[in-house]
Design a protein around this nucleic acid. Structure first.
Lengths: 296, 296
DNA sequence: CGTGATTACGGTTGACGTAATCATA
DNA sequence: TATGATTACGTCAACCGTAATCACG
């Protein structure tokens, strides 16, 4: 179970071809064939059917192991390299769509002003991708958001020893078209909204599946699915009557045609966490420290 | 970053000696030295101080990666072997102290009766150990318990693709000495008990830290710590006035000198989950299926 | 037949053991 | 000085490429 062998196995399974995998990995066709043969010998099972090439049941199972395994291995390499290499004046930040609250943009602006020579990049990505890329040092810092119970950490995939620190918490609110019958209410209970029409925007708003889990019912049916990550587009869809959306309250305020009504959900709060390796020096560490000192 | 090298690195760090690690792994002193040298060369960093042998800062970091990494690797090997090997008439079950409810002992008794030739073993272990050993096939089935919000899975370490299925849910109750002033109440709120004296029994009862997290206060101070896993001993301590304990309600009923009072905690419930690899045939799979069909 | 996987074979590299050397408590 | 880590070196196996062979579509 040499990682090299696992890597070529994954490549072969993904591309469905020994020769293509060989090209991808810079090996000859023969080497790839030998890799698979030794792996199959070692494990005592056929992993791939040939002609056409597709994983067997055992192969599928091994793939489920191999992915996370190789990811962790890459993460370990990258993490040690990050500890060892000289710190560069370069920061790449991954941000999930609702993570960047005003409290957090302030330290970013401060760094921009006090360190104009640092090269800063911000990328909007999903929580899972951010976690993975922070672990593998493709990102220096992640800002991930999600709904949880207070004092409960966000549940992120465990790829390696990363530091996650909660920095901001915001109450959930439902976005309603201004003329909606409930738009004048000062507060709503989550259960009251189970039968409404919803927009399913799993990459941007709170996923409807999570509302069902939290309330224990199976309401919150979607009338439209939005696959982008732009909150303003999503709210425009809500304003146009396509359905409701649950978002952190500050994200909704001040949008024309939309009213935000606070939702009292049982122990459900929107939280942003700073995710980073615990490096102690260099620009990313300084920014991480600044972000982690934010409260609100 | 060959896993072999990582393994010897971990061994050297644990035993604090190249020669002892060599003995443990069946290598010569020289081979271990070469392993560490190639690893340090590969990563471009000194991992160990010599004389005395102890990990450097980078080494400590690598150890944090290496443990889970090697665990996952072992789990993958064991899992594939389990899929490949012929099923034996042998079942080893790991059980966390409060997981074995009456609903779950019934399928166990059924199997015992219908399959008297099968060799069944039950071991009481911690949640973490059970998860690890189910992943590495030291156990066939795990029964793990814990407190969570309804519909929320137990938070178990992610070692590999295991199937976790919730089977029983029980309300939390506080165990009180019969003469305790609150013993006649029919129900209590968790917050009412923050200032009481508690027994800290993290391996048996609900950990006090989790009560603090759930209620957002820092009460629930421990007057005594119990490190065993025997519920009756724990309840005897409570009966003797050493402090209160929070347990699933059925575990407390019918104990002399003890009254159980239901505790309404905000969305906190005691759940048992069946943990197993998704093998499809053999005695463990049959028992797992029987256990998973339990509801309550 | 032709594309693509397997097998045969050889050169190079790397892994480990023996033994000599070095270094530190 | 003795214990224990490192270095030198030889042997053997493993790895990968070239090229021939095999097999499925």
């Amino acid at each position: 179970m040499d990682p090299h062998l696992l890597r070529t196995f994954v490549a072969v399974a993904r591309r469905g071809s020994f020769s293509e995998a060989a090209r991808e990995l810079g090996y000859t066709q023969s080497a790839v064939s030998q890799h698979i043969a030794t792996l199959e010998n070692d494990l005592g099972a056929v992993l791939l059917q040939r002609r056409p090439v597709s994983p067997t049941a055992v192969g599928v199972r091994l793939l489920e192991h191999a992915g996370p395994l190789l990811l962790r291995l890459d993460a370990a390499r990258a993490d040690i390299a990050r500890l060892t290499a000289a710190p560069a004046a370069r920061i790449v930040i991954g941000v999930s769509p609702l993570a960047l609250t005003p409290q957090l943009t302030r330290p970013l602006a401060d760094i921009r002003r006090t360190q104009p020579l640092w090269d800063m990049t911000v990328r909007v990505l999903s929580r899972e991708v951010i976690t993975r890329q922070v672990a593998t040092a493709d990102l220096d810092i992640g800002l991930v958001d999600g709904m949880t119970a207070p004092n409960d950490p966000l549940h992120l995939p465990d790829i390696g020893p990363l530091t996650a620190t909660a920095v901001t918490e915001q109450p959930p609110a439902v976005a309603l078209p201004s003329q909606h019958p409930l738009a004048d209410r000062t507060g709503l209970r989550l259960a009251d909204l189970a039968d409404a029409r919803w927009i399913d925007a799993p990459d941007t708003a709170i996923p409807l599946a999570q509302l069902r889990t939290a309330s224990g019912t199976d309401g919150y049916r979607a009338s439209l699915r939005y696959e982008g990550t732009d909150v303003r587009v999503l709210l425009a869809l809500t304003a146009a009557g396509h359905g409701l959306t649950l978002l952190p309250q500050p994200s909704i305020e001040g949008i024309p045609g939309i009213k935000a009504v606070l939702v009292s959900a049982p122990r459900l709060i929107h939280r942003t966490e700073v995710l980073h390796s615990n490096a102690v020096e260099g620009p990313p560490a300084l920014l991480a420290a600044a972000l982690m000192s934010v409260t609100g």
